[in-house]
């Protein structure tokens, strides 16, 4: 009796797992928010991501060290753009950076474009190598005509930890 129940449970579990796998892979294949079967999860290579379809994380535009970011900052040509939400930006951001919260991009872009010429070098950043928002923001800016957009992968936490210039907003 017990053995019969266990065999049935194993069979049912097999059915449920196959059903979930088939449904999951089919939906993923056709969904615009589908992801690759293997993601990009090595933080040493830059920002980690699940590799969403049509939204590639381009490692070519990444600034991978705080020193390199600081050299660009010291050069004073590039504008640092903070992709994080307003509350985090107000708590602290790279000195001189402007806020362009990635989720509000559609609403804020017109105002941003009025002030920032398309050929101005831009460095987007967020909260570190687990945060993809800087890449999303960089992609939006490039699509809208900005020609020189890079991503500072270690973002605000590493910048502040190194003791580089930061400021708060009220």
């Amino acid at each position: 009796m017990m053995r019969r129940i266990c065999v049935k449970i194993f069979k049912d579990l097999g059915i449920m797992i196959v059903l979930a796998a088939v449904t999951g892979f089919c939906v993923n294949a056709f969904s615009p928010s589908g992801i690759a079967l293997v993601g990009d999860w090595n933080p040493e290579q830059g920002v980690v991501s699940a590799r969403v379809k049509n939204q590639p994380v381009s490692h070519d535009i990444e600034i991978r060290t705080v020193d390199e970011a600081f050299a660009i900052f010291s050069d004073q040509k590039a504008l640092f753009v903070d992709a994080r939400e307003d509350a985090l930006f107000n708590e602290g951001h790279i000195k001189g950076a402007v806020s362009l919260f990635v989720n509000d991009y559609g609403k804020r872009f017109a105002g941003f474009m009025e002030k920032v010429p398309l050929d101005r070098p831009i460095v987007a950043y967020c909260s570190g190598r687990s945060c993809e928002d800087s890449h999303t923001l960089a992609r939006y800016l490039k699509e809208d005509g900005y020609t020189d957009v890079r991503v500072f992968v270690d973002g605000y936490p590493a910048w502040a930890e190194e003791g580089h210039p930061v400021e708060k907003s009220r």
Binding site: A20, S33, G34, I35, L37, V38, W41, V48, A50
Partner: peptide
């Protein structure tokens, strides 16, 4: 609705080999 964010949550657990993360997030 957001498998990418879920994959990142699985990554954040720090317990799973990289090659299994996306398949887990899909299934």
């Amino acid at each position: 609705t957001d498998p990418s964010a879920f994959a990142k949550v699985i990554y954040g657990y720090g317990l799973f080999p990289a090659v299994t993360i996306n398949v887990t997030a899909i299934v």
